[in-house]
Amino acid sequence: MDALKLELKENIIEQLNLEDMTADDIANDDILFGDGLGLDSIDALELIVMLDKNYGIKLADPKEGRAIFESIDTMAAYIAENRSK
């Protein structure tokens, strides 16, 4: 699980172009959107593609992403349960 969380942090930093950040800067329970890390609805769409591409999870409705992408913890839990690759 910890490996998955680290992988997620690294992918998020790369995919969302968070230039000045490292994985250590993101805590597992940090809020990713809004006032937390500052991600927005376009980032959510990027993360939906990441779920599909890396873990074989397809979300049909971007609204589903809100709860899943709340933090690294919630993302990792959802991926662990639903991944097909």
Partner: peptide, 9 residues
């Protein structure tokens, strides 16, 4: 497949 929106926007 696996396209992301940023470049399109």
């Amino acid at each position: 497949q696996f396209l992301t929106p940023t470049a399109f926007i």
